[in-house]
Amino acid sequence: MTVNVAQRVDLEVVSEIIPPRVKVLDVGCGEGELLQLLQETRQVDGRGVEISQRGVNECVARGLSVIQGDADTDLVFYPDKGFDFVVLSQTLQATRNPRRVLEELLRIGDRAIVSFPNFGHWKVRFSLFFNGRMPVTKDLPYSWYDTPNIHFCTIRDFVSLCDEIGAKVERATALDVNGKKIRFSMPWWFWNFFGQQAVFLLKR
């Protein structure tokens, strides 16, 4: 099981947000690290959706309630407000229609937690500016032609999408390269420049 820095930080930040004994859907749950953590430390009623069959089989063998599914196509099968929290961790940028996925999350869950890599981070900007090439970093290790991440956005892009679809940002956390939280008092442009990861708590 490989958990990279972004995922590890996600686990911590997301689990801080979620209160005990709520009903949680983890969309793109991988091998179930977050669900397991939430079940053990928060006693949540957790479910998962994962696109890779290998990940699903691993989750079920670990006793988690997970199905194979695609965030782009399979969220429509869930009823309105069936969950207290729906988590989309490091997956938004890999969906075909991020806007619709986000709307589905807000329909299914009372609240949605979305985390994603920030394409506005200074390293990304510098790489593009100085090298003139699509950035390849430790946390975004793919070349442009084989990346599953087809819809990158910056923190400001994401905030403006939230405005557009009427999602209220209840809480936002930006993390720097070391996974440390950036002070909340900083303005958006600062977050957008120095935040490598972002975690948003949304409600509609």
Partner: peptide, 15 residues
């Protein structure tokens, strides 16, 4: 599985 999702049931599915 989709029907169970719609009914809000707890469901795992392995292929």
């Amino acid at each position: 599985v989709h029907a169970l999702n719609a009914a809000g049931a707890s469901v795992s599915f392995v292929e």
